[in-house]
Structure formats: C-alpha cells, structure tokens
Amino acid sequence: METEIHVPLGSPVIRRFPIFVDEHQVTDGAIRLIKELRPAWDPDRLQTKLFTDGTTNKLVGCYVEDSPDDVVLVRVYGNKTELFVDRDNELKSFQVLHANGCAPRLYCSFQNGICYEFMPGDALGTQDVRDPALLRMISREMARIHAIHAHNGCIPKPNLWIKMRKYFSLVATEFTDQASNLRIQREVPSKALLEQEMLWMKEHLSALGSPVVLCHNDLLCKNIIHNNKEGHVRFIDYEYSSYNYQAFDIGNHFNEFAGMSELDYGLYPSREMQLEWLQVYLKAYKLYTKNTEQLGPRELETLYVQVNKFALASHFFWGFWALIQAKYSSIDFDFLGYAVLRFNQYFKTKPTVMALKIPE
C-alpha cells in the first residue's frame, strides 16, 4: 500500500500483553502492566501520576522512588477511538520515528493501549510556539521528520482524503432527519454543504503540488516537548502520523497556534512569522534531503500559499474528528462546540486564502 508506513528491517519486536485496562480505573490497570513490564520494581515503592491534558486518551506515568528518571507512560485508548485512529499504523510510526531519533522507546502494547518511555521536558503552550528560538527548533524538527523515508520504494500517497472521507461517513448518520442531536442540525453546516466543500478541497488542494512526506498530522502545542537542558524539541503522540502533504502538516500546526480549550484565531501566525518559520524549515529540509539548491523567494512564497490553503483542510479534518468524539468520547470536553468553531473558521478564512496565488 502506498499510504502505509514501513518499519525498518531488524527493528525490535514490540511486546504485547493480553491485558485490558478499564479507562475509568487507569491507575489500577497501569500497576498490573508495570508488574509485567518491570518485574524488578518493588510494588510498595511504585508511584503513579495521572496526566489530564489528553483529549483522546487517558495517560498515567509510573516510576519507583529511587529511580524517578525512569518513568513508564501507560496510555489507555479512549472509547471507540479505533474508529478513527489506525492503531497498527501508530505503532509503526512510533518505531520508525524512534529509529530516527525523533521519538521515545515503545516498551509494549496491550489490548487497549501502549506503554512507552517518558521524554523529559515541558509541553508547550500557545505563547511558547511563537517564541523565536522555539519556533526555529520546531520548524527544524518537522523538517527532520519530513525527510525520513519510511516507504517500501513505491511513491507514497497522501491519506488525507481517504481519512477525511472515512470520518465524514462516520458522522453522516448524525445529519439525518431522525438524528437525535438537535444541536448538530442547528449549528453544524448541512451534510450536503460539507460534502460539496470536501470534494472541492480535494480537487483544488491536490493540484497545488505539495510533496507527500512522512507527517505528524497532529502538532498541537501540547504535543511538542521542549527539553531546555539539552536544547531541543521533540514531538509526541503519533496516532495520526502518516504519509501526507507537507503543507498540511505545517498548516495544521499553524492552526494550532490558536489553542484548543479556548480557541483564539487571533493567535494564527502573521505572514511575517510564517515566512520566518518556513525559511528555517526549507533550509533544514534541504539539508536533511541533501538538496544543494539555493533557497529562493519563489520557493518560499509557494510554500506559504500551499500551507495556508491546506490549513483549510485541517479545519475540516478536525471538525469531523470532533463530531465523532462528541458521540463516543467519555472525556469532559465540548467536542461539538469545538467542531462548530473549526467549520466556522474554515468558511470565514476561505475567501482570503483562495485569493492567494502560487507565483509563476
């Protein structure tokens, strides 16, 4: 398959435990897993810390008092997330990124989750991603991931349209006359309009010539960890990683400047900030792909236009995602309200973005 990520030959086999963890009793389940994964650890000295930032999964860190630096993270997948997350693909992404120094170690998988190495550092916020020094680190790290070859020799294809169509089919039932959710009928654009826009986007954006590369696809602020001591950033959470358009990954990240719990699109990066980000990115991408051509203004402007147009697709992608989450997730978050905000932003910015032209 041209959309699949291929794990390098010789990569370690991932251990798998036949354990199911109740998402409402994550700590108890994590302790059961640690007994299998770290049998030498004294159960009486085991410490746990529950993380609360996730909007898809539940996460708990486990360690023993005498070695607080060796933290095992246990992530329990959210209810019905297998509907929109390819778990096999996530494990492959984890392995490929770790093999290239971009991800922590993956220790094991279990029936409804994974255990992996904790990466020290601070998760970023909406102001951090605007910091000039961090901005440059982030753009270089994205370039490094985009330069990774994880395909089997055939030309990789983007999975954006396949995934978006799948999400749309999952939420389409909510738009029927019999659907019980009146709020969707009142606040979300009609099924016909959403499908029309989706077809238009596929036709228009596919023709922009954005390269297909290995993408993170979910680079929100909290998925960027800054290790100040070592002076680098790393990206975490690879559930949506896949081959995709280069410009989608960047445009999606720029949308995330607005945050999530309190969306503020006034924080979307200005043209000047974007051009600084993109210039650093292109120089790094050329270096990682051994492209010796000089970076010119036309190349920079082309990427700027591609990125802002693909940012439209990002609004749609996460709008559909949020509608699915609104139906199934047990996490306390107004997913439906978030979906409405993403679709609204799409229609608000579309006229301005579509006026942008790729230079001749």
Rank of each mutant, 00 (worst) to 15 (best):
Tyr167Pro: 00
Glu203Tyr: 03
Val171Lys: 09
Arg183Val: 13
Trp200Met: 13
Lys202Phe: 04
Leu182Val: 13
Asp177Arg: 12
Lys166Trp: 12
Leu193Tyr: 04
Ser206Leu: 04
Leu182Ala: 15
Tyr167Asn: 03
His204Pro: 01
Leu205Ser: 07
Leu182Thr: 14
Ser206Glu: 13
Asp177Ser: 14
Val171Phe: 10
His204Arg: 08
Leu199Trp: 08
Arg186Ile: 14
Leu182Glu: 15
Met201Val: 00
Ser190Phe: 00
Gln196Asp: 04
Ala172Ile: 03
Tyr167Arg: 03
Phe175Ile: 03
Glu195Ala: 05
Thr176Ser: 15
Leu199Arg: 09
Val171Thr: 14
Met201Lys: 00
Ala192Trp: 04
Pro189Cys: 13
Met198Lys: 00
Leu193Gln: 11
Leu170Pro: 06
Ala179Met: 05
Met201Trp: 01
Met198Tyr: 02
Leu182Pro: 01
Leu182Asn: 15
Glu187Ile: 04
Met164Gly: 04
Gln185Glu: 06
Met164Arg: 00
Ser190Pro: 00
Pro189Tyr: 05
Glu203Met: 10
Asp177Lys: 13
Asp177Asn: 14
Lys202Val: 03
Val188Gly: 10
Glu187His: 09
Phe175Met: 02
Glu187Cys: 14
Arg183Pro: 08
Leu170Ile: 06
Ser190Gly: 10
Ala179Tyr: 02
Glu197Ile: 00
Phe168Ser: 12
Phe175His: 03
Lys166Gln: 12
Leu182Lys: 15
Arg183His: 13
Glu187Ser: 13
Ala207Ile: 02
Ser169Phe: 01
Ala207Lys: 11
Tyr167Glu: 00
Ile184Asp: 01
Lys202Trp: 04
Asn181Arg: 11
Gln185Met: 09
Thr173Arg: 06
Glu203His: 10
Glu174Lys: 14
Ala172Leu: 06
Gln178Asp: 15
Asn181Asp: 15
Leu193Ser: 07
Val188Glu: 02
Asn181Ile: 09
Ile184Met: 04
Phe175Leu: 02
Ala179Cys: 07
Leu205Ala: 09
Gln196Cys: 02
